[in-house]
Design a protein around this nucleic acid. Structure first.
Length: 478
RNA sequence: GGCUCGUUGGUCAAGCGGUUAAGACACUGGCCUCUCACGCCGGUAACAUGGGUUCGAUUCCCAUACGAGUCACCA
């Protein structure tokens, strides 16, 4: 028995990667790879009206950035190509016509507008037209439709949802070939999945109710039906509290939007892996390779889940903390540089302060802008109950600090630290009473990344002194 | 509206006939601390409802309610 699992990711090139699609790709990849199988990328570009320029590139680059590399694709080829549906047109027509010959499909010459207003559908009107050949010759445009059974029901087994059954009379005679000669999604899908030896068809549960149509097609051809795995939908919360399929009105829903908001690709992937699936253990942080070894179809959930940006933030901050300081510096650098222009400022040190306190990269500029420009601040900031700081104590501390730093031999954390120890014991105050006004003077804000010593260190002697002098002036002219 | 599917805290979720109903996020109390954060220790909060089946139902079955999906020459 040489049974090799083959799954496929079959996006249509829309120009962006919806997060739900990415999750489908992830699961398809994991299902294949956890069983040593193949993961195929097929481009479903049969909708000629919605074609988007370099949309295919978005697909490649996204998959690449999250390490979901396909074994076969339009780009790298494979034994079952072509992998772009627009290049497989002839194949679909051939199969559709063979169905017509077998009496299982027929030409339908109705206009689109006619179809829409039709009450009882094409089953009654078009199935048995006698002048098809004549109309064909006259060049009248047509579609090819499949004859659906008029009674009975179609039953199928889904690996997630179990047994699903639908009455055949619910099903309209589905279009196989559109009037522009391109196949419909439903038809092309079945043909390609069969021709490409796909063993597990994985897709969102919005396809659950149209799956009987696929089965009827497999049956019409006499082909084996693949295993179906329908995935619960990813939902978004609406403003009024209701939920619906995650879409643009819920915020960033494409992979590239999320990345541009400062989320890390690994974090995004890890989070969406948990939307509709979970491992046996309580572990939450998984690399793609770890996922490969723990993933199992049985643990897929049936109920839809709401995309929670807060939880994504948490995953992202975990991934940020996992980075080495060099890796993080590289990631943070562009964000730091967009506010910090002063060349004397120690950027790696800023980066170090940032790593443990941000959940996404976009927060960086606003957090560190005070390093570049001292913001306007109210003198009242020097008063703080918790640290027992007031105008007089602040004035005293700042004066002593200004004098002390001008004598510092080497500008290091250790030396600065000792310097404040000395001041603290000299004037016999709480440490926080000493540190509070310094930090305010240096930053102009009550919340800062790092403490006073770290900020002092980064700012350097000259700029620090300038800022402390400014604070003293403020306090004196009060 | 017809059809299909779903329903455990605010959110993601474990559970697969007997549990003090896990864990995580969020929220929150405290500790640590030169602020905030990190870290550590705690806390609040859930089985939609009604019938069965059973010695016993969150778990199995059936209704009801609610929610979602789908009914295209879009995928």
């Amino acid at each position: 028995m040489s049974f090799r699992v083959r799954t496929r990711f079959a996006p249509s090139p829309t120009g962006y990667m919806h997060i739900g699609n990415l999750r489908t790709a992830l699961y398809e990849y994991l299902i294949a790879k956890s069983q040593n199988g193949d993961f195929i990328l097929r481009i479903e570009d049969t909708d000629r009206e919605r074609l988007v320029g370099d949309a295919e590139e978005v697909i490649y680059s996204t998959l690449k950035s999250v390490d979901l590399e396909a074994d076969e694709s339009p780009k790298i080829g494979g034994n079952y190509g072509p992998y772009r549906q627009s290049e497989r047109k002839d194949i679909y027509i051939k199969y559709a016509k063979s169905l017509v010959e077998k009496g299982k499909a027929y030409y339908c010459f109705c206009e689109k507008s006619e179809s829409e207003s039709m009450v009882s559908g094409h089953k009654d009107k078009c199935r048995d037209i006698t002048n098809a050949q004549e109309l064909l010759k006259s060049g009248k445009s047509y579609v090819i439709r499949q004859k659906m059974p008029l009674d009975g029901k179609t039953v199928f087994e889904d690996m997630v949802y179990g047994k699903v059954e639908v009455e055949n009379k619910e099903l309209e005679d589905q279009i196989l070939i559109k009037s522009d000669g391109y196949p419909t999604y439903n038809f092309a899908n079945v043909i390609d999945d069969h021709e490409m030896n796909i063993t597990h068809v994985v897709r969102g549960s919005e396809y659950l109710s149209s799956t009987p149509k696929y089965n009827l097609l497999y049956e019409a051809f006499g082909w084996d039906i693949p295993k179906y795995i329908h995935l619960p939908l990813i939902m978004g919360k609406n403003e009024d509290g209701s939920v619906s399929k995650l879409s643009k009105r819920h915020g960033a829903v494409s992979f590239e939007d999320l990345v541009s908001q400062g989320y890390l690709p690994e974090a995004i992937l890890n989070y969406i892996a948990f939307l509709g699936w979970c491992p046996e253990s309580n572990q939450e942080i998984f690399s793609i390779n770890e996922l490969k070894s723990v993933f199992s179809i049985e643990r897929l959930s049936k109920s839809p889940s709401i995309f929670d940006y807060k939880k994504l933030d948490w995953f992202n901050s975990e991934y940020i903390k996992l980075k080495s300081s060099e890796e993080f510096l590289n990631l943070a650098l562009p964000y730091i540089k967009c506010v910090v222009k002063n060349e004397n400022i120690d950027i790696p040190k800023i980066s170090e302060l940032l790593q443990k306190r941000i959940s996404h990269l976009n927060e960086i500029p606003s957090i560190i802008s005070f390093f570049e420009i001292l913001p306007e601040y109210e003198i009242e900031l020097f008063e703080n109950k918790k640290s027992k700081s007031n105008f007089e104590s602040s004035h005293l501390v700042l004066k002593l600090t200004l004098r002390a730093i001008s004598d510092v031999s080497s500008w290091s954390y250790e030396n600065l630290h000792d310097l404040f120890d000395n001041i603290t014991s000299e004037i016999n105050m709480k440490k926080s009473t000493v540190m509070w006004p310094v930090r305010i003077a240096l930053s102009g804000q009550t919340i800062t990344p790092g403490g006073a010593i770290e900020i002092l260190e980064i700012l350097g002697k000259e700029e620090s002194s300038r800022r402390i002098k400014l604070a003293l002036e403020k306090l004196e002219t009060k």
